[in-house]
Lab assay of single mutants.
Amino acid sequence: QVNIAPGSLDKALNQYAAHSGFTLSVDASLTRGKQSNGLHGDYDVESGLQQLLDGSGLQVKPLGNNSWTLEP
């Protein structure tokens, strides 16, 4: 069960990665100043990332080996 409060997208993504045990490689300029609506409930990694990114204009991309990145 994930419980991440709304706020900074950077912070939300870092909390989610730490909670879910995956690696997220992101260029900080992509997420700077963006906000997230947070995340509450049970999600697989990709669904949770998509939910956190909702409205940010960013997309999640798998890199393999439980690693992910973001792209515009």
Rank of each mutant, 00 (worst) to 15 (best):
L24T: 02
P62M: 10
R32E: 15
G55H: 05
S29K: 11
V2L: 09
Y43C: 07
A12Y: 04
L24K: 00
L24F: 10
A5E: 13
N66S: 05
S56F: 06
V60N: 01
N3C: 15
L49Q: 01
P72A: 12
A18D: 08
N66F: 06
P72S: 09
Q1D: 08
P62F: 15
S67E: 12
D44C: 08
H19F: 13
R32H: 15
L52H: 01
Q35I: 13
K61E: 01
T31Q: 01
L30I: 08
D42T: 14
V26S: 08
G21I: 04
L52C: 02
V45Q: 06
N37L: 12
S56Q: 06
D54E: 14
Q50W: 12
N65I: 09
D27F: 05
E46T: 09
K11S: 14
Q50I: 13
P6S: 09
I4Y: 01
L13N: 02
D54M: 15
S56H: 11
V60D: 00
E46F: 14
T31F: 06
Q1I: 14
N3I: 11
D27A: 06
F22S: 03
D27E: 09
N14I: 13
T69R: 09
S20K: 15
Q50F: 08
D54S: 14
A17I: 08
L63P: 01
Q51D: 05
Q15C: 11
T69F: 09
S8Q: 09
G57N: 07
F22V: 10
G7V: 05
G21N: 09
L63V: 09
H19M: 15
W68Q: 01
Q50N: 12
Q15P: 00
N37D: 08
Q1T: 14
D44F: 05
Q51P: 01
P6I: 05
D27W: 09
S67K: 11
N66L: 05
S36L: 02
N14V: 12
N3M: 10
Q15D: 14
G7P: 01
V2Q: 04
H19L: 15
H40I: 13
L52D: 00
D42W: 15
K11N: 13
L52K: 00
P6H: 06
V45A: 06
A17H: 04
K11T: 13
L9T: 01
N65Y: 09
Q51Y: 09
S8Y: 08
K34L: 12
D54L: 15
W68S: 02
D27N: 08
R32T: 14
V45K: 03
G21L: 06
Y43G: 03
G55D: 04
L9Q: 02
P62V: 08
D10H: 11
L49E: 00
T69A: 12
A5D: 10
G41Q: 02
S25F: 15
V26C: 10
T69E: 08
S25R: 12
G64A: 06
L30P: 05
L58H: 01
V60G: 10
A5S: 11
P6F: 05
K34F: 08
H19T: 11
A18F: 10
A18L: 13
F22N: 02
Y16A: 00
G7W: 00
H40P: 00
A12H: 01
V2K: 01
V2E: 03
G33E: 07
V26M: 11
H19D: 09
A17T: 05
W68R: 00
G64E: 05
K34E: 09
K61F: 08
L70H: 02
